[in-house]
Design a protein around this nucleic acid. Sequence first.
DNA 1: AAAAATATGTCAACATAACTGACATATTGT
DNA 2: ACAATATGTCAGTTATGTTGACATATTTTT
Lengths: 161, 161
Amino acid sequence: MAGQPNKKADADISPAGTDITDAVDFEIIELLFFAYRDFTSDPDVILEKRGFGRAHHRVLHFVDREPGMTVADLLDTLRITKQSLARVLKQLIDSGYIHQVAGPEDRRQRKLYTTKEGKTLARALAEPQSRRIAEALAKTGPGARDTIKRFLAGMKTAEEN
Amino acid sequence: MAGQPNKKADADISPAGTDITDAVDFEIIELLFFAYRDFTSDPDVILEKRGFGRAHHRVLHFVDREPGMTVADLLDTLRITKQSLARVLKQLIDSGYIHQVAGPEDRRQRKLYTTKEGKTLARALAEPQSRRIAEALAKTGPGARDTIKRFLAGMKTAEEN
DNA sequence: AAAAATATGTCAACATAACTGACATATTGT
DNA sequence: ACAATATGTCAGTTATGTTGACATATTTTT
């Protein structure tokens, strides 16, 4: 567990011109794993009470964040298949957390909105995650938020469009 | 420093003493989702060729990083059940990527090590992830790495021990 | 108007990776 | 001897993803 610039050092020391661009960043890879593991486990207690899983959480979150988004939008955001989405979306609709409205211009579309209950649940799920983030940012120091935002945005694969 | 106190501002503006500690950080929550979604998809191509999944990747990664760790250590790290681990671990052992050695002091233990092939695979899987991190850090600016490290460490639930 | 394309929904079968519960074996500690 | 521990394994279940095929309504193109 002792902090170490060992990996970089190893690469520099490597005999002759063996490997120069070596130095794999295992440290951040691992920190990301732990951070995300614990971050996603926060809402599990609340979800379980309602018989939902993380898939439901993700759908509810994005519909809540972008009211009126279509099924196609959601598929593109979550990167799952229509059939995978259908199951959890149907459950959320049947449970009264999300409702659909036919698109005003294109009536083939189903625009998605959270109901009042949906908004409440989305908020409740986000709360412990938000608290965790706030605490981590506070411990990191002032100005951290902007750096984190830029880093995380940079980790996302750029969209082609 | 000059981030955006928008959400905080909204909360401050809220009528009467409605919500003060409100301000849920949807923005970072979402950025984390996209960052992790794309980060974990990097090694998928390599894994698929060998008939492995992300579960195998995680096991291989940690055994490679901490040679000699026991099954119990691994269970604690991954936060999955013994039966879940057994399946993927067995496959990695049978495929010759990981080997076991009875503990020298406590012979009930199975100390885990990556084989030569295991090390090679672990490195190959980490490489695209490491590259993504390096690019994101470069875009974020100098000094970002330390801030990111501290933030991610702060996101992890503290261990009791 | 007819044909093609698009957005969504749905059926069926299957894969992966998690879960619970129970029990077996070898080894260590009391 | 007995209890506790570390690991392995059997059997069944659940959550969430997959592919492929096809139906329906609607919009766009020809």
